[in-house]
Every structure is written in C-alpha cells, then in structure tokens.
Simulated scan of single mutants.
Amino acid sequence: MAQATIGNSEFDRDTAVTARPDEPGVFDAQLSAGWTILRAVNGGYLLATAARALGQVLPHRDPFTITAHYLTASEPGPAVLRTDVIRAGRTMSTGQARLLQADGAGQEVERLRVTATYGDLDALPDDVRTSAKPFDIPPYERCVGRADGPDVADAAAFSSGSTEITDRLDIRLDPATAGWAVGEPSGRGEIRAWFGLADGRDADPLSLLLAVDALPPTAFDLGLGGWVPTVELTVHVRCRPAPGALRIATRTRNLAGGFLEEDGEVWDSEDRLVAQSRQLARVR
C-alpha cells in the first residue's frame, strides 16, 4: 500500500471541514467513528478538527498554543463549528471555535470550546536554549504493539467499547511502561511510546494535536482502569516536525479528588521537542 501523505490521508479526510457560504466563520464536519475509543470520539481528533476550522479563518496557518475545554462527549456524525476571530496581528492571530452537535430534539449542544493563537512556525528564529533532553526509549522494533502478544493496544482496559482508533495508529509502547497491559502496572504514572499514523502519513502541526492525546491514559500505569475523559487540554506546538516516527512521553504526578494531570512531550526524528501538552482528566 502506498504511504499516505500530508493532505492526502484518512486523518486529513476525517478532519475536513466545509465552510457554509451563507454563514461566514461557520463550518460543517462529519466526525468519523474511526477515531473513537470506548464509544466516545477521541479528544485529540476533535481538537485537530477544530484547529483546521480556525486555520481557515485566521490569517496565520500554524497553531502555536491551543486550549480545549471538553463540555460534553462527542459522538460520530455531523457537527458544526462556529468560529470567531478575536485578534489578527502581524505575526500572531487568536481565535475561538465551538464544536456543536444536535441532540435528540434537534437542539445544538456544545461539545467543545477552543481558544488558540496561530502564527507561522517557519518564521520562528533558530535560536534554541533548552535543558530539555529526549527521553530514553528502546528502538522501535524492541517496543510492543498490537502484533505482540498479549495485545497491548486492545488490553482489558479498552475492552468495554469501540477501539476503532487503534486501527489508525501505529503505537509501540516502551515495555518498561506497558506492564499495566498484563496486570503489572509500575505505579509511576508514566507512558512512553513511538507514535505514527498507521497509513504512514508524516506528522504536521495538526496531527501533533492528535498525538498528544493518543496514548493509553497514565492512570493505567497507576493501576486504574476504565474511561479517563479529558476535561481540559492545552498544547504548545514548538516547531514543525521532521518526517519519521515521533516519540511521546506522558506522566502524571498527582491524582487527587478524582482528577489527574498529564504532562506530555513529543520529540521528532531529529531529536527536537516539537510539542508539549498538559491536560486535566477525570478518573472514573
């Protein structure tokens, strides 16, 4: 099978939005069942769809920082995105998007609200001064994925609902953070993995928004199971990723009151920190 390319892949087709000619700033989308987990549409996929709509109304093309509040669970099917330009500057612009779906009575229900600042990643200076270092992870071929038994990607924690999204991702977990899949969580609250899209599409700023929310929840490594819905997710895109597999690490340091935070970092094939994220999630 030919490798998919940016702009010509299932991810691009499933995050496509269509502008309404008679309603400026309003877009229609079709949320695909292919990106669901436990019957809910994945939050990173939703964020990428909203970001695509914002990219059509803002004068800059790349999300620098984007924050989403997840208000109600989204379902596969039609959705409407209503966008607003808050400020358009010379080097950065800021906008807002609301993702809505009709309920059983035909009334619009807001699923997601996003605020984002966009710019041009290619125009950023090359100067890098950082103490951040790529984390250690075994080579791709020594990490574990769906082809390895037991089936890590479809472990018991995912078994109570749809796992369609796992067919679209190429995730290879660091064995040191995959013990939860065989009933041996480390208790450290860490997940590390290689990440790519199953059709071979290289990463871009929009797919980074999916990547940061694509790994199994860190709650699993704490010995907890079940759905861990995201309440709020913020992503900082630091540079355009180079072609090749990504490395993602997520970690939680505090679970209290039924909520935990997850801090994520994404490194590209050239050892550059291309994205950082933090989310607040509810443990059920």
Results as ranks from 00 to 15, higher is better:
M1D: 12
G7A: 09
N8W: 09
E10D: 13
R13Y: 08
R13L: 12
D14S: 08
A16D: 11
G25N: 04
G34N: 10
A40S: 14
L46V: 05
R52I: 06
A53I: 01
Q56A: 15
V57N: 06
L58W: 03
F64E: 10
H69F: 07
Y70H: 11
L71S: 06
S74A: 15
P76K: 02
G77Q: 01
T83D: 00
V85L: 05
R87V: 07
T91R: 15
M92V: 15
Q96H: 14
A97G: 11
G106D: 08
R113K: 15
Y118T: 10
A123L: 03
S131V: 14
F135K: 09
P138G: 05
D148T: 08
G149F: 15
D151Y: 09
V152R: 09
D154A: 14
F158P: 00
S160D: 12
I165K: 04
R168F: 07
D170G: 10
D174E: 02
E184T: 14
P185S: 11
S186P: 09
E190V: 15
R192A: 12
A193T: 03
A203F: 00
D204K: 08
S207P: 09
L210S: 04
P216Q: 13
G226C: 09
T234E: 04
V237Y: 07
C239H: 08
P243A: 05
P243W: 04
L246S: 02
I248N: 01
L255C: 05
L260F: 04
D263P: 00
G264W: 06
W267E: 02
W267A: 03
D268C: 02
E270Y: 02
D271Y: 04
